[in-house]
């Protein structure tokens, strides 16, 4: 048993909604905590935070692309634009973990590339290790991005650029951007793989390279039209240079344009409902296995139930979770699970 106490989730939620940095940090720690009592507390926190706002407000942006394409410096340049426009920004930067048999550790080096040297209270960066999960994004990113959305105008998720499997990003972001590197075989590989189906915006970085960059941009523009292509979105391809600060403003405007497009066409609500359901199912399965999903009414049943409570999926999640816990632990009535956690403000774990 550790000495560190868990925060009161309802109070923490209030502080997060007020934008207190310490509370955001504490909330993220809690969502990362795998101890049983922390999980109860985390489910309560998400339920307290959830609401209509999570379907309509803020902007979740996903950035992906091959290693060395300059994702972090581009994110840095975009943050500058958002901050100039007075929007607060939260960043979740995901880096690879070493293999479990090699200790599973990770070096998280993104802050240094994203951060400007000056102090900025409107910017919050959390680095995460992907902990060997396929798809390039750790499970924790889902709830963490929702939590950040309660506190910041923009939430950017930068994923590990390790290969062609990072399709998970499509299940998080409202707007997904793929950063390509000119004259690189990677881009051709990506074009061939499934990932070309995902981004809403493309950036060809290092456009100061000239012809090579223009060639890559035209290859992307000419690539096969996607299956679910939305007729009324143009999938822009932007030539940018993060280091030379070229084309950044035009590129940046595409994000706002896409966000407005999603709102105007009423796509945002459906997208977020789907993303939240997918995550709830994934988390329930992680904690309770296939059997747990069955006991809770099966995948389809859960999704229907979540869809009916679209603006309150996390409250629904907490309810299902409690139900499952009581089923699993029916020999030992789960009185302790509903016990009010003592309200220590500090969340250092």
């Amino acid at each position: 048993m550790t000495r560190t106490s868990l925060p009161d989730p309802d109070q923490l939620a209030v502080r997060i909604l007020r934008g207190e940095r310490a509370a955001v940090a504490g909330g993220l720690n809690l969502l990362d905590n795998k101890l049983a009592e922390a999980r109860n507390c985390a489910a309560r926190l998400l339920a307290s935070l959830s609401g209509e706002r999570w379907l309509n407000e803020g902007h979740l942006v996903g950035i992906t692309g091959p290693p060395g394409a300059g994702k972090s410096s581009l994110v840095c340049a975009m943050i500058r634009e958002w901050r100039l426009a007075g929007r607060s920004v939260g960043v979740l930067a995901v880096d690879p973990s070493s293999r479990p048999e090699l200790g599973g550790g990770a070096l998280l080096g993104d802050r240094i590339r994203i951060k400007n040297s000056s102090q900025d209270e409107g910017l919050f960066i959390r680095s995460l290790a992907n902990r060997n999960q396929l798809g390039g994004v750790a499970t924790e990113v889902w709830p963490m991005s929702w939590l950040m959305l309660a506190s910041f105008d923009i939430v950017v998720i930068e994923t590990v650029g390790v290969g062609q499997t990072e399709i998970d990003i499509a299940d998080i972001g409202d707007t997904v951007c793929y950063v390509a590197q000119p004259a690189s075989g990677d881009t051709i590989q990506y074009l061939k793989s499934g990932i070309i189906e995902i981004p809403d915006i493309f950036a060809v970085n290092k456009c100061d390279l000239g012809a090579a960059a223009r060639k890559t941009a035209s290859e992307i523009s000419r690539s096969a039209p996607r299956q679910d292509r939305r007729e009324d979105w143009d999938y822009p391809v932007c030539l940018v240079s993060a280091t030379m600060n070229a084309g950044i403003r035009e590129f940046h405007e595409q994000f706002d344009r896409h966000r407005k497009y999603l709102a105007r066409t009423d796509l945002l609500r459906g997208l977020r409902t789907r993303h939240q359901s997918a995550w709830v199912v994934r988390l329930l399965k992680e904690e309770f296995g296939t059997l747990g999903l069955e006991l809770a009414g099966g995948r389809a049943g859960i999704e229907r139930c979540l869809g009916d409570n679209a603006s309150n999926q996390f409250a629904e999640y907490e309810r299902i979770r409690k139900h499952l816990l009581s089923r699993f632990m029916s020999v030992n009535p789960p009185s302790s699970l509903t016990r009010k956690e003592h309200s220590d403000e500090q969340a250092t774990v």
């Binding site: 310490a22 940090a25 993220l28 090699l102 200790g103 550790g105 070096l107 998280l108 240094i112 102090q119």
Partner: peptide
């Protein structure tokens, strides 16, 4: 590098940081 090798998740922000930046990173990174 050693801490990573034995299983830590390591945040390293490079050189020339103010104490304020270090404390802020400690908070944001948990």
């Amino acid at each position: 590098v050693k801490a990573r090798d034995v299983g830590f998740e390591v945040v390293y922000d490079g050189i020339r940081l103010t104490p304020q930046q270090i404390a802020q990173a400690a908070q944001e990174e948990g």
